[in-house]
Design a protein around this nucleic acid. Structure first.
Lengths: 203, 203, 203, 203
DNA sequence: AATGAATGAGGTTTCATTCAT
DNA sequence: AATGAATGAAACCTCATTCAT
């Protein structure tokens, strides 16, 4: 009689997870092309062939990885959106980003490396541009609601700042005075809540 | 009968240049591993074998490329250093960076892609960390001289901001309100010159 | 509690049969190497591993198939042997062959494909040459008994003709005027029964 | 300075030819799938990689082979078409076929093996059905001109006979009384030239 | 009897690099 | 300086087969 369906399912999940974890580690260090499937399988502790029972191709592993990273992004905004003032918003967003980076440092390093290769991105069919657009929209809206003038431009600047700080933080790998930098960055934004006018309460 | 030494030398230089230009284009689009020597030679209009008369290896082409990009960075600082106030310093540095990016967009894309792969960087023997350290030192010094408090932290923030804006600018490929973003970014920095105290004129 | 031995045995037989049928279909279309065990198992509706409870290897499936086809051949001769004249003998043999081909078209296609690869045949250990020799012997004997002169040569010709017609018939897959061709082929052979002389009754 | 264009061209041609010859030998013995590219290259005396400078894929080698074999077929008909009577036509066609088979025995063995695998043929995009149709048309026309009644059916029979004899001949590899079989086969066809009526000279 | 996860050898193909000319 | 045929290592992936359950 076969293994129980449950046992099988657990087995599959475990292996899949090991592959993904090995992939983050190796891809982020040696690059996607610099990581052979054999090396990947070895790091995951499985036979090379088995990888293809879980992923269609080496590329599919990368795609799975990046997709999981893309859903993570929105969280920083969700966290920040609870703050009333622009300054707190920025602070929280940066702190949330740092938490994220601490958890998934390698995954993000990988993403940063991929971002600037259009043909590669196209092959992976990741909706990156679309995601960034949505992110910017939400940023602009958040800043407008907190009384920031020129929220479109300011959103771009904030995005760039968060992105820049994040990359520096990831790159310095430990010895980066992130708290102080966050404080300095946030101090550039107004600490006062906007006068309580929203769409709804116009006279 | 041999060509004159001069003519030969000029030919060499021309071919070398064509290879480098082809390399920026292809590496930045398809990645280093995604570009075959054959494709590179074809794009440069030469036979594959000839490439090895000019470069030791495919990797050496990449190294030559990155080195040329690294020397460029200092220019933004040189330009900015002539400005008296922090705000003008930031403005000029960003404007200078944009000029640089306009000229060498692909080269920078390539660099951004490489930056986060430690093992790859190690193989290329590029003194990236060292360069970034120097750059930070100069930034800190520049800010201190212009009366900025906590110049160490502020230098980090400025670096991150310039880096973030640059990447966004490169990535948006044309439709980025760079002037407005620069203005917004610079507006965060003091517009007044420091009281005229330099090293020399302490009592 | 175990199933009864009978039920088990019937199950085994059914599964085995399904595998064989799936194998004819797939092997004949995609070739032996072009058919994976996985695909074979799927077509048979069983798990890949189970195949090995019924056959030693993928090759063993092929061997079983070909053996079953080889025993079939003799039937055409058995059928034809009842006819008194050479012409009827040929007619019946061809008609019997057509019946066989209609029943096992794919199996024969498969066999035709294998026939000309000596090293493959050797690996399968099919006594093909031996079988063809026996077949030829019986043909020669049959023709001699029906008064055909040079029965050895004529047997070769008859064999070739039956073989050629059979392959054309299989290949045309439906639109082949087989009846007319059989008539034309048979018309080449004498329609008279031999005078009732056998070995024994020479003076 | 590069090799002369001529020298290069000769080099290429030589290598290509060696690959093709190695391919006939190996494919015909072990089958297409049973022959690895490595084995093929070794038999051809070249490095495995070089094969791909001459052929797009292993499959392309097979296609090149089969194409060359297909042009050969028409020759047997050209030869036979010079004969005035049906019997001589058949004799010459068979003799011509034998010459062909002697020259390209392995190539034809290969073809016979491929013929019955529809999906494989489809992938190779060989116009086999079309070719066989043309061949049949020419046969029918030839027989009609030589006064054979029911030339359509007779052409099919002749085709099958030639095909059958050819395969037997190839398969017996030496010890086949081909001359006698040809004589026996041809004796079935009328030895008289048709009364000299052609389309044009009807009253 | 039956399942399907797992293995690891071997398949085709690509590619950086060398070398004869 | 320049060519492109040739090499051979290594890449990705498939597959027959085994094995725990």
């Amino acid at each position: 009689m076969p293994r129980t369906a449950d046992a099988n399912s657990a087995l599959r999940e475990k292996t899949r997870e090991r592959v993904l974890q090995a992939a983050v580690r190796l891809f982020s260090r040696h690059g996607f092309d610099g990581t052979s499937v054999r090396a990947l399988a070895q790091e995951a502790g499985i036979a090379a062939g088995l990888l293809y029972a879980h992923f269609e191709s080496k590329e599919a592993v990368l795609v799975a990885l990046m997709q999981s990273s893309m859903t993570d992004v929105a969280r920083t905004l969700d966290d920040a959106d609870r703050e009333p003032t622009a300054r707190d918003f920025v602070t929280t967003m940066l702190e949330s980003a740092v938490t994220l980076l601490d958890e998934h440092r390698d995954l993000w390093r990988l993403g940063y490396g991929l971002r600037h290769q259009p043909e590669v991105l196209a092959r992976l069919e990741l909706p990156l541009a679309q995601l960034m657009h949505q992110f910017h929209q939400r940023l602009e809206q958040a800043l407008r609601q907190r009384g920031v003038r020129e929220p479109g431009i300011e959103a771009l600047l904030l995005f760039a700042t968060v992105d820049g700080i994040s990359q520096q933080y990831v790159q310095h790998d430990g010895d980066y005075p992130i708290a102080a930098v966050i404080r300095a960055a946030a101090s550039r934004w107004p600490a006062t809540a906007p006068s309580r006018k929203r769409k709804a309460d116009r006279p």
